[in-house]
């Protein structure tokens, strides 16, 4: 397992570096827009952090397919279960790394975001990974990119339309956030359980896909 992680980290370090660079560019851009730093200025930087944190785990799947590594590793003593486990471990490591990066950005900007916001970022990264890893495995990186755009685009359009049709009002949004603030433990446990359950289900689905794959 360590060998697989070492290989993946070694292989995707260029993407990791580009990801960090993009975060920095958005951070500098956010900091230079407007007279003072605010969470809304830094929104794009956090968006990039979450996106790259979610996508980076799928790069290794793509590379494994492209270079023929799957053939080699599936004909080695390593079980297919372990191969997939290493991808999810890489996903968790990537989620933690980019969440820490969001903490760094927040500290740099004066600590405007509450601590729970970073846990939400972590949850979103893991949720996105739980969809994207099996999709990349089954349908490839190109399809995953389309899906990723849809995952971002559809909720934004939906929220926009609901807002436009007055089904979603400022008061409702404010009330929702107030409710979350008033029930932090309940919300945290529920959200955490949902994320973990989905991540686990995604892992077993990926194992099933990989077990049946022919190379």
């Amino acid at each position: 397992m360590y060998g697989l992680l070492y290989k993946d980290l070694h292989n995707t370090r260029k993407e990791l570096f580009i990801g960090i660079l993009m975060c920095l560019i958005f951070l500098v851009f956010g900091a230079s827009v407007g007279s003072e730093l605010s969470p809304s200025n830094l929104g794009p930087a956090y968006g990039v952090i979450v996106s790259i944190g979610a996508i980076s785990a799928t790069y290794s799947l793509h590379y494994d397919k492209a270079c023929g590594w799957n053939k080699f590793i599936c004909a080695s003593p390593i079980s297919r279960f372990k191969v997939i486990a290493s991808k999810y471990l890489l996903g968790v490591a990537s989620a933690l790394f980019f969440t820490l990066l969001s903490v760094g950005v927040n500290l740099f900007s004066g600590g405007m975001l509450p601590v729970w916001a970073h846990l939400v970022f972590l949850g979103i990264i893991l949720l996105l990974q739980s969809v994207m890893i099996p999709v990349t495995l089954k349908l490839g990186q190109n399809f995953m990119v389309v899906l990723f755009l849809l995952l971002i685009f559809i909720p934004i359009v939906l929220l926009f339309l609901l807002y436009r049709w007055n089904l979603l009002t400022d008061a409702l949004i404010h009330g929702f956030f107030q409710w979350i603030k008033s029930q932090p433990v309940l919300f945290g446990i529920t959200a955490g359980t949902v994320v973990l359950a989905l991540y686990g289900a995604s892992f077993f689905l990926s194992c099933r896909f990989y077990e049946k794959m022919e190379f």
């Binding site: 060998g3 697989l4 070492y6 290989k7 070694h10 292989n11 370090r13 260029k14 590379y63 494994d64 270079c67 023929g68 590594w69 053939k71 080699f72």
Partner: peptide
């Protein structure tokens, strides 16, 4: 079938 970004040394380690 080896990762293209690796070299023989890093491959050996993995």
């Amino acid at each position: 079938f080896f990762p293209q970004e690796m070299n023989a040394l890093s491959l050996g380690k993995a």
